[in-house]
Design a protein around this nucleic acid. Structure first.
Lengths: 145, 145
DNA sequence: GTCCCTGCAAATGTTTTGCATGTGG
DNA sequence: CCACATGCAAAACATTTGCAGGGAC
């Protein structure tokens, strides 16, 4: 049993305890999400899940993603100009850089930025519920052409 | 002549030079945008513009907003869970805090965060095209109830 | 007068929902 | 078994677009 399988198993148990039935469709999506190290959108997740559950409908994919988001299992990102993209939330908090040319998503974390954000909110009488930091970037060329 | 009027007039001239015809609809939207100190969405801008140009269509509003964004006159923000919201871009760069309870948008600027972002991108071989920092916040209560 | 712009209606793309049927626990 | 999940089709929603007529310059 791989570590990913074990993680998925624990998750499944936790979800069941939370009253979420683990159907074939949901199990497939959980597996797909656990394996994914990119940030796929709903249709891509459907495509990947179909290898296990042919005919899984897009509505079910969306309904499941919403449920998993509610349960805190996954994160939904709305980057500019694309459908929502998803990732499992078992990793450390991080923000995203999006390569505007390739669409590739790179994760990064910076403790100082996090702290500054909290301070700013605090100073204005607010507390942060969540935040969103996205850097839309382009690969640097060694020298101007 | 107010300062807002003067700004709008200069803008109009600049846009005309850029080959953008200033129709009644566009003039109305420019005026509405210049006056607005909030972050209205397209339908709200249509509502406000209708006081000057009754019957202005939503397509025209969207088309104009896209054009003005291209010309660098306005900024389009896609906050979570709402249609796009717009603001004129004549002010200093800033980021946004969104009160999740009221939907109110508060602007803030922080030079250190800006610098950190640039450094992070730089360190990973990228340059920032643009970025997006949104703090979804809640008003702090003096003491837990 | 010439293009560009407008309004309308229809299309688009993503996501949600109503309903009859299927199935996990 | 039965409450909840699914698939399908249709709706919802924000935004864009094709087209015929109108207006800025």
């Amino acid at each position: 049993m791989t570590q990913t399988d074990r993680r998925t198993e624990n998750l499944t148990t936790a979800l069941r305890r939370a009253g979420v039935r683990i159907t074939r469709q949901r199990a497939a999506l959980l597996a797909v999400l656990a394996e994914a190290d990119d940030h796929p959108e709903a249709t891509e997740l459907q495509r990947r899940a179909e290898e296990v559950v042919p005919g899984i409908s897009l509505s079910t994919v969306y309904r499941t993603l919403t449920e998993l988001e509610t349960q805190g299992v996954i994160l939904r990102h709305q980057f500019e100009g694309t459908p929502a993209r998803f990732e499992h939330s078992e990793t450390q908090h991080h923000d995203h850089m999006i390569d505007v040319d390739s669409g590739e998503v790179v994760e990064f974390a910076n403790e100082r930025i996090e702290r500054l954000q909290a301070e700013i909110a605090e100073a204005m009488g607010y507390e942060i519920v969540h935040h969103r930091l996205e850097l839309y970037v382009r690969k640097k060329v060694a020298r101007e052409p």
